[in-house]
Computed example of a mutant assay.
Amino acid sequence: MTQEKFEHIYQRAEERKGGETQLENLIYQPLSNDDLRCITDDRWLAGFTEKVFQCGISWNVVRKKWPNFEEVFFGFKIDSLMMLSDEMWEKKAQDPRIIRHLTKVMTIPANAMMIRSARQQHDSFSEMVAEWPSESITELWDYLKKHGKRLGGNTGAYALRQMGKDTFILSSDVESYLRQTGIIDSGRTTKRAQLAANKAFNQWQQESGRSLSEISQIIAYSCGDNRVL
């Protein structure tokens, strides 16, 4: 099956959202590489932790409690957190100010170690993320899954998107489109599906000159339940 041209996807999204202006107003841009490099380690750790806790829980519930997370976990300052003993982590996991979930709380020291270890090959974790090429963005997903904790599936990709890294997302709408058009035909988290999706997005990026993030959003707006009222 021939891959659909991006201009056709855009036209469909434009029609569904009430015109070009309305569609473009919905689309947000990723950060520049220079801006990504300015993100500090504590913000990466906070971003990953927020997405871990939002998995399987209402995002709004996590957002409402997030100031408490920042307080309980020292603003996610890695040097301070790495000084905690296992007993102290267990105690923090029982703090009623946060969502009490020991397994998810224990991702914090694990992902702190991942962020810190990136300094061995790069100037910083932010530098590594900024320099990671878009044509192999799913390999960055794999890196987070392999070296981090509970950052597989869509969690790592959503965290990257939230932090401003240019990446597409295999949301339900995007995944459905890719399946209907025959681009992917295996499990969403399989290497085969991710490579096929990355290849398709690279082609659309060459056609349009847009970021992976923009293309992902436009595909979502072109199908599924994303209709203009």
Rank of each mutant, 00 (worst) to 15 (best):
E4V: 15
F6K: 00
I9Q: 01
Q11G: 12
E14S: 14
R16V: 00
K17R: 11
K17T: 09
G18I: 01
E24F: 09
N25M: 09
N25V: 04
L26Y: 12
P30G: 10
P30C: 11
P30Y: 12
L36E: 05
R37T: 06
D41A: 14
D41N: 12
A46Y: 01
F48A: 05
K51W: 04
V52P: 13
V61C: 10
P67A: 02
N68I: 01
E71W: 01
E71I: 03
V72P: 04
G75H: 00
K77H: 13
E87A: 13
E90Y: 11
K91Y: 10
A93Q: 02
Q94E: 15
I98R: 01
R100C: 13
H101P: 07
T103C: 08
K104G: 11
I108W: 10
P109S: 03
A110M: 04
A112H: 06
M113F: 02
M114H: 05
I115V: 08
I115G: 06
R116L: 13
S117R: 05
A118C: 14
R119H: 12
Q120N: 13
H122K: 01
D123H: 06
F125V: 02
S126N: 06
E127K: 00
M128N: 06
P133Q: 01
P133F: 01
S134H: 04
T138K: 00
T138V: 08
E139I: 03
L140Y: 05
W141E: 12
K146N: 08
K146H: 05
G148A: 01
K149F: 06
R150W: 08
G153N: 06
G156D: 13
L160P: 10
R161K: 10
Q162S: 13
Q162N: 14
F168K: 01
D173I: 02
V174F: 08
E175D: 14
E175H: 07
L178V: 10
R179F: 05
R179T: 08
T181H: 13
G187M: 02
R188G: 10
R188A: 15
T189P: 09
A193W: 08
A196K: 05
A196V: 06
A197E: 14
A200T: 12
A200E: 10
N202P: 11
Q203Y: 08
Q206V: 08
Q206N: 09
E207W: 04
E207T: 02
G209M: 07
G209P: 11
G209A: 09
R210I: 09
L212Q: 09
I218G: 14
I219M: 03
G224K: 00
R227Y: 12
L229E: 14
